[in-house]
Design a binder for these strands. Structure first.
Lengths: 217, 217
DNA sequence: GCAAATTAATGATTTATTCAAG
DNA sequence: CTTGAATAAATCATTAATTTGC
């Protein structure tokens, strides 16, 4: 893949695989003699110099770190964003108190990591699933129709959702009092952080403020 | 980023983050009502329809599976390739038996996962490091000079390596008999597979045969 | 299908930071 | 406190991969 008189080294598949294997086995900053060794080995598969090996490990290590850093940032940012999002949703619901989206649900904070774990929708198979077109679809179900594609995939729900974890908040049907965890009443929103902090990486996204989200109600 | 009158939906950053979080939390094929919910929520951050959500999960799930498949394939291929590589190296060494690269080393297979773990170079801080131009460098050290850049980065080794894990093989200085694990003599190569098997994914790399690697000695 | 255009990946270089010795 | 070695981070530059219009 690399042209003959190319200005910069580009590793062959074999070279790359071996370098990655060495890296994975724990080598990060190889010594001069290690570089010498590796270079000798890899020259079996194509033109290569010591500096290539040296730079390769330097870059690979750096970019590994960078990737990790980015990942953590993203995670953090996501959590904050989701908190904000939930804040807005729940606020909206409490304000409206109509028969609208959250109207029939009771919201209370979910305890994460505590002894009494609440029902979690995510991993339990109960409650929510797809079902293809059965009878009586038009009575209770919501019928999706978007265009002509997938004509046999009209989505109909069979049972209603009863409980749902949503970030740090659990949402459940107000009529369903079977589970015993709902001692708390509606919770207000004092404890949500209203600002987000960022560091120099990933500071491009515009800052979202929840300030005006309830003004127009 | 999405043009105003774009023909197809492209999620905003917030939308994408929330979708990914939902996916990560276990949702794979959301029900109609879940799709409805999600759509309503996400429309807070930009134009979106139910079908977008529906297709997003469909695609994401499929591509996740695909990615996993590719990864496993790559891993398998890598292992086979590396075995081949080590086979070639060690074969070479045994053939030559000169003062060349592996000449001073004793090779024996490393036991992975067994009770008696061999010494590993990778994580120990002893033995190997860089050192800049000190006196007497030309006697034992290898002096790296690649071009005019980094004039103050001449690489000199201070102590020699004594043992090195290399794939499933351990390489150690034949003179160093301090570690007690070297009961086995030189090993020959009968157990290495000489062919590799592939499946339909990732079959672009040319096939390397070890046939002629030792003919010219 | 293909080739120009665009984007992403990564090799190579430079600059900044850390840390130990004097 | 200064200096020098070693490393990490940032940046530049070229190549590989992908998209796009025909």
């Amino acid at each position: 893949m690399a042209p003959a008189g190319s200005s910069r080294w580009s590793p062959t598949t074999e070279q790359l695989m071996i370098l990655e294997e060495l890296y994975r086995s724990g080598i990060r900053t190889p010594s001069a003699s290690q570089i010498q060794q590796i270079t000798t080995h890899l020259s079996f598969y194509g033109r290569i110099e010591g500096k290539n090996v040296f730079y390769w490990f330097q870059n690979h290590k750096a970019r590994d770190r960078q990737k990790l850093r980015r990942k953590l940032n993203k995670q953090l940012q996501l959590q904050q964003q989701l908190q904000l999002h939930n804040y807005q949703l729940i606020n909206q619901d409490i304000m409206m108190r109509s028969n609208h989206f959250f109207g029939n649900y009771l919201c209370y904070p979910t305890h994460h990591g505590s002894g009494t774990q609440d029902i979690s929708l995510s991993n339990s198979s109960s409650g929510l699933f797809f079902q293809g077109g059965a009878e009586n679809t038009s009575e209770r179900g919501i019928n999706y129709e978007w265009g002509m594609h997938n004509p046999h995939q009209s989505l109909v729900e069979k049972k209603d959702m009863t409980v749902c974890n949503y970030g740090t908040w659990t949402l459940m049907d107000a009529n369903d009092q079977s589970s015993s965890c709902c001692t708390r009443p509606l919770k207000t929103l004092d404890l949500f952080p209203l600002t987000t902090t960022r560091d120099r990486e990933n500071c491009t996204t515009p800052h979202h403020q929840p300030s005006s989200s309830c003004d127009n109600i």
